[in-house]
Design a binder for these strands. Sequence first.
DNA 1: CATTTGACGCCAA
DNA 2: TTTGGCGCCAAAT
Length: 84
Amino acid sequence: MLTFKQKVFAIVAKIPKGKTMTYGDVAKRAGNQYAGRAVGAVLHTNFDPQIPCHRVIGKDGSLRGYNRGLANKKRILINEGVIM
DNA sequence: CATTTGACGCCAA
DNA sequence: TTTGGCGCCAAAT
């Protein structure tokens, strides 16, 4: 049985390049439709550069946080073709 | 074990 | 359109 955060990591790691998911979406996939906050908390605690958490953004497309710097995250998203 | 905190999301004013 | 408030969850202390 994977813990919530393990699921979150797995899901985030599965996000295809050039694509983005909202925290709520990930939460829903992780098993809880209302665990958007928890998703953010999990990603915040995880400092693994191998986890493309930069592809996880707010529901309305707003960047929230990033363990490597928001500016970097923004840059990466643009670089991957995720333009709003 | 109980309390606090935060990278959310939706609704009402 | 912007601001404020409420509900929800898991991790950290």
